[in-house]
Structure formats: structure tokens, C-alpha cells
């Protein structure tokens, strides 16, 4: 469930412990350190790109064609290797469900 304690700082939320992405809770800027936490795990991650509010960043390196995990489930796959701290969105991930993008 939602950990509200982390909302007051430059932070991103890991929704499920199995996830490899976190969700930005503010507009985050390239070069900033961002706080992530989940189930006792706490870490500061250097942001390699701007991450707009509500968007996702990789909290670990993700190889090409690997699962992007949010809510503990696969929401798509990467179409290029993604570094820890990079923005993950439609430019570097895809999902074939529903015939859409």
C-alpha cells in the first residue's frame, strides 16, 4: 500500500517490492538524487534524466526485451537497455496487449 511518509521529499514510490520501476511523486530533475523506499529497503538514486510527476524511473538496470514491473506485474517490455535512474516511458518500452502501442 501507499507509503505516505516519503511524500515530503524528492522521492519516488516503489508500489510493489517486486517492481523494477518507481513512480515520481514530484517533478524530478536530471542530476538530482531521488529517494526511493519499499518494504524497509531505502536508497538514493542519481537521476540520469528529468522525470515528470507521475512518470517512472528505473530503479535497477533493465536489459533489452526484459519485463518492466509495476504493481508487481509486467506492464510491458523494454525495447532498449535502460540504466538505473533513466526515465521509462513509451520511447523505451512497449506492450503488445490490446493491439495498441
Amino acid at each position: 500500500m501507499v507509503d505516505v511518509a516519503a511524500y515530503t521529499q524528492k522521492s519516488a514510490l516503489i508500489i510493489d517490492p517486486a517492481d523494477n520501476v518507481a513512480v515520481a511523486l514530484q517533478d524530478l530533475k536530471k542530476g538530482e538524487q531521488c529517494h526511493v523506499s519499499s518494504n524497509g529497503r531505502e536508497e538514493w538514486i542519481l537521476l540520469l534524466e528529468d522525470i515528470p510527476f507521475g512518470h517512472k524511473l528505473a530503479i535497477e538496470p533493465i536489459g533489452q526485451n526484459e519485463s518492466v514491473l509495476k504493481y508487481g506485474e509486467e506492464i510491458g517490455k523494454t525495447n532498449t537497455p535502460v540504466k538505473k535512474g533513466e526515465w521509462i516511458h513509451v520511447h523505451n518500452m512497449f506492450c503488445e496487449r490490446g493491439g495498441g502501442k
Partner: peptide, 13 residues
Amino acid sequence: YDGGLSSVVEKSL
């Protein structure tokens, strides 16, 4: 997309 959703499955979950 602008709101940070990258796929229909992410939206569905």
C-alpha cells in the same frame, strides 16, 4: 501518456 501511463496494462492494473 502525458500523465505517466506507458501501456494499456499499466492503466488496467
